[in-house]
Amino acid sequence: MQDAARISAEGTVLAFDFGLKRIGVAVGNTFLRQAEPLAIIHATTNDAKFAEVAALIKNWQPVLCVVGLPMHPDGEAHEMTQRCTRFANQLQGRFSLPTVLVDERYTSAVLNGQRGEHIDDDAAALILQQYFDETL
């Protein structure tokens, strides 16, 4: 797995905002460099979550996956940091896709005040947009 570095492949990118209850998903491409919310995975089991992820990967054929990496404000890791890293490793291992981690510390602040059904995919879109803005 790679840190948020430039990936040479051109094409579709899927981003994930991993959570224990939901996974927000966003899509974009390396040409337009614009992220759009795509879906929220509500599956309760790990197998069901990865079945939904597999369907999205089959449909969108991404060249890269991006996963948000939560950290404490001072940059220290916490329990969700480890869980997101594991999720990213599983994405890369199961689907043989390059996967990068992007610091998501401030996405919550940007989305603060938004409530409702679409916050998880909006967070994924912010993570992906941050990747595009910083690396491409």
Rank of each mutant, 00 (worst) to 15 (best):
F31Q: 10
V66A: 10
R105Q: 11
N112L: 03
N89F: 06
E52P: 10
P98D: 08
W60F: 15
G28L: 03
Q90A: 10
N112R: 11
E10G: 02
I127S: 04
Q114F: 14
K21F: 06
M80W: 02
A5C: 05
Q92G: 13
K49W: 02
Y106G: 04
R22C: 00
A35H: 05
A51I: 03
M1F: 13
T12Q: 10
D47Y: 00
G75T: 05
A35L: 07
H72G: 01
R83E: 14
L136Y: 14
G11E: 03
A35M: 04
T30W: 00
F50G: 01
K58C: 00
N59G: 04
L38K: 05
I23M: 00
W60E: 06
T30E: 00
A124Q: 07
E117F: 07
A54N: 13
A109H: 13
V110W: 02
G116D: 04
H72N: 15
E79R: 10
P98C: 05
R94I: 03
R33Y: 00
L20R: 12
H72M: 12
D3F: 15
Q61C: 05
H42C: 10
F132C: 00
I41K: 09
V53L: 14
K21T: 13
F16T: 11
R83T: 04
A51Y: 09
G116S: 09
A88H: 06
E104I: 07
D47H: 06
H72Q: 14
R33E: 11
N59Y: 07
P73E: 03
C65A: 15
Y106V: 08
K58V: 01
N46A: 11
D120H: 15
L126F: 11
G75Y: 01
L91E: 07
G19V: 04
E52Y: 02
T99D: 12
F31Y: 08
I119S: 07
K58S: 10
E104S: 14
A39D: 14
A5E: 15
T107A: 05
L97M: 11
D17E: 04
Q130L: 06
M71D: 00
G28V: 09
A109N: 09
E134L: 01
V63P: 04
I57N: 07
H118S: 14
F18Q: 15
A48N: 08
L14G: 09
L97D: 12
C84E: 07
H42K: 13
K49C: 13
T135Y: 00
R105A: 09
V63Y: 02
L38H: 05
I57P: 14
D74P: 09
N89D: 13
Y131G: 01
R86T: 08
T45E: 05
D120Q: 04
R22Q: 12
H72F: 11
R115D: 15
W60I: 03
A4C: 12
Q130A: 11
P62I: 05
V67F: 08
L97C: 13
